[in-house]
């Protein structure tokens, strides 16, 4: 029991969910399997000391993206495809390529483990730094008409606060670019999904 048991449980959920996505005939069944896979990944995030990311995974993937998928499945009204094949005629070649990829990447991981590049089995190098960090910042005050700078060191507790410091201090520009990206994606989705209107002259 303990961590290995939970890891293997979530790993099984993730793997069988992913296989279900690929193997199920109806898109709705694929979506439900995908939901299970997302939740399993969220559990693995929490297990790997990334609690904030686990919560984001549940909210964004299992909440938002899954609802988008289900609404689209409902809108496009997939007809009953009882007799039709649900895979390409070249599905055999695709499967071969998939297993080749698995073998190549798996062989790479095994080889790098042999040369101790991934000295993997054991405790993380420094798990405390993921959950807490100390922030040093300079505070400038005006005292008696003179500027006085003092250096303040604060301890940050918890994974969410550490992520917030990283996101809003070290990665502020990428964060803002991501917001612009989301705006562009939203406008693009609205324009693409809109019916072409009759031109009123």
């Amino acid at each position: 029991m303990g961590e290995p048991f939970i890891f293997w449980l979530f790993a099984a959920i993730v793997t069988f969910g992913a296989i279900g996505v690929v193997a199920m005939r109806q898109p709705v069944h694929s979506a439900i399997c995908l939901l299970g896979s997302f939740l399993g990944v969220a559990g693995l995030f929490v297990l790997a000391h990334a609690e904030f990311l686990g919560a984001v995974q549940v909210l964004v993937y299992a909440g938002g993206i899954m609802v988008l998928f289900l609404f689209t499945i409902m809108l496009v009204n997939v007809r009953r495809t009882a007799g039709e094949p649900f895979v390409h005629t070249q599905a055999g070649a695709g499967l071969v390529v998939g297993f080749l990829l698995l073998a190549i990447v798996g062989g790479t991981v095994v080889a790098s483990y042999r040369v101790r590049a991934l000295s993997g089995f054991g405790e993380p190098a420094n798990p405390a730094r993921l959950a807490s960090t100390s922030i040093t910042r300079t505070v400038t005050d005006v005292v008696d008409g003179k500027k006085v700078s003092t250096t303040v060191t604060e301890d940050v507790a918890g994974n969410s606060q550490a992520v917030a410091w990283g996101l809003y201090r070290d990665y502020l520009l990428p964060f803002e670019v991501a917001s612009v990206f989301l705006l562009v994606a939203m406008i693009g989705a609205v324009v693409l999904g809109k019916r072409t209107m009759e031109r009123v002259d």
Binding site: A18, I19, V22, H88, G94, V97, G98, F99, L101, G106
Partner: peptide, 14 residues
């Protein structure tokens, strides 16, 4: 990488 390979297979065969 198991998850990645399953995903690539899905892209290729569905």
């Amino acid at each position: 990488f198991v998850l990645f390979a399953i995903g690539v297979t899905g892209v290729l065969i569905r």
